[in-house]
């Protein structure tokens, strides 16, 4: 089948390479609207099937396309979908921006059914929701509050991320509420300028109504290893681990995400989990 990638930022370019590697696609087309951008120059240098004709170019090439990946920004996504919505009835649209368009999908959770318009939430969402969901299922009403702090390397945060921090937080929280049904949550993000850059690291805090029991802790440990092994299928260096509890009413789980190192450096696990999830999903779509 054929696909179109919109956007030549860090995500778009990495997606192109992962699509090439997946061997699912006969033709991959990548579009943006500024042929002088860094990403466009990279596409030309690497001899990608690239065009700067923007959304009009995309529309002209929709005919034999099965999947459209949107790797632009939250604001552009709204504009793009306005233009495309009526033209893509028998196609799949995978939204990698933090806008709220589309149905939320986490490959770990929704494996068999892919909505026509998919929202991949955010890197923090892709990383943490499988864990939050399992812990919620085990603790039930004993779970009072969940907090997620994602730490990403400054070099992995492009312009779209920096301009869209509010959309990032809002969309991540909305998705956590919708998928896990935990209502009291808080999402925060930190950009770390350290050199050498740090790997993407997430801290999850689960506040309980009473001290955590040994049985629950054991169940959670088991489900963490299940999550690790299943996510490792598409994200080989995803690693969630429990911290020995200091406060008995607070459970802490950290998740480190190291990327494949295709076009992105391995520390940019935050971007890599988005492109890896997108390509992993496309494996279950056929012509």
């Amino acid at each position: 089948m054929n696909c179109i990638i919109i956007g030549t930022g860090k995500i778009g370019v990495d997606l192109y390479i992962k699509c090439l590697k997946s061997k699912n696609f006969k033709r991959i087309f990548i579009f943006n609207q500024d042929k002088n951008s860094e990403g466009a120059k990279y596409c030309l240098k690497k001899k990608f099937n690239y065009s700067s004709k923007g959304i009009e170019g995309v529309i002209k090439n929709l005919k034999d396309t099965k999947i459209i990946f949107d790797a632009t920004s939250a604001k552009s996504n709204i504009f793009i979908l306005k233009k495309l919505r009526k033209l893509i009835n028998n196609k799949y649209f995978i939204n990698l921006t933090p806008s709220i368009n589309g149905e939320y999908v986490i490959p770990y959770i929704n494996t068999n059914k892919i909505p026509q318009i998919t929202n991949l939430i955010t890197c923090g969402g892709q990383t943490s929701i499988p864990v939050i969901n399992e812990v919620k299922n085990i603790l039930g009403p004993k779970l009072k509050y969940v907090e997620l702090v994602s730490n990403i390397a400054a070099k992995s945060a492009g312009k779209a991320t920096r301009d869209n921090i509010d959309e990032y937080i809002t969309n991540t929280e909305r998705a956590i509420r919708k998928i896990t049904k935990v209502n009291k949550i808080k999402v925060m993000i930190n950009i770390n300028p350290a050199e050498p850059p740090v790997n993407m690291m997430n801290s999850l805090f689960f506040e309980l109504t009473k001290d955590i029991s040994k049985e629950d802790l054991k169940k959670i440990k088991n489900s963490i290893s299940k999550i690790n092994s299943r996510i490792k299928i598409y994200m080989p260096k995803y690693n969630a681990s429990i911290f020995e509890t200091i406060e008995k009413k607070i459970l802490r789980i950290s998740i480190e995400v190291i990327g494949h190192g295709d076009s992105l450096p391995t520390y940019a696990g935050n971007l890599d989990i988005m492109t890896s999830s997108a390509v992993h999903l496309s494996n279950s779509i056929h012509d």
Partner: peptide
């Protein structure tokens, strides 16, 4: 040594562990 910046209080415990 970890070069943590303001806001990364959550990672202090990781370093100390």
């Amino acid at each position: 040594k970890k070069k943590l910046v303001a806001g990364q209080e959550d990672l202090i415990i990781n370093a100390l562990y």
